[in-house]
Amino acid sequence: MREERGISQLTLSQGAGFNDAFVGLVERPARREKYNLNHLNSIAKFLKCSIKDFLPDIPL
């Protein structure tokens, strides 16, 4: 969704109230940092969408 909207990692990090490098760290597959529900809620507020938009309809 971030890429579809043309939003940089830095812009999302700052807009959601995270450390400047946080989104970049989470998006690296080799890193252990991942989003939790609080992170997703902050991102949803920034992107003006629902937190449900980040979750699958059917459990994985």
Rank of each mutant, 00 (worst) to 15 (best):
G15K: 04
D20Y: 14
N41Y: 12
P29R: 07
D57H: 15
I58W: 13
F18E: 10
F18G: 13
Q14K: 13
L40V: 02
Q14R: 14
S50T: 09
L10D: 13
N19R: 11
A21C: 15
P56M: 10
G6L: 00
I7D: 14
V26S: 00
K34A: 01
E4Q: 09
G24H: 01
L12S: 13
L47C: 03
S50D: 14
L60N: 15
L12W: 10
F22K: 03
I7H: 14
L60G: 13
I58L: 15
R31N: 05
C49S: 13
A21R: 14
P56W: 06
L40W: 01
M1R: 03
P59Y: 07
S50A: 11
N41Q: 14
C49M: 11
L37E: 04
S50W: 08
R32L: 02
N36W: 00
E27G: 12
H39N: 14
R31D: 02
R2N: 11
I7T: 13
N19K: 09
R5Q: 05
Y35N: 01
N36A: 04
L55S: 04
R5W: 02
F54Y: 03
I7C: 12
L55E: 03
H39C: 13
S42A: 14
E4P: 06
R5H: 03
D57Y: 15
K45F: 06
F46E: 01
L37P: 02
F18I: 12
E27H: 06
V26D: 00
L25Y: 04
H39Q: 12
A30K: 04
A21V: 15
L25D: 05
K48N: 10
A21W: 14
F22T: 14
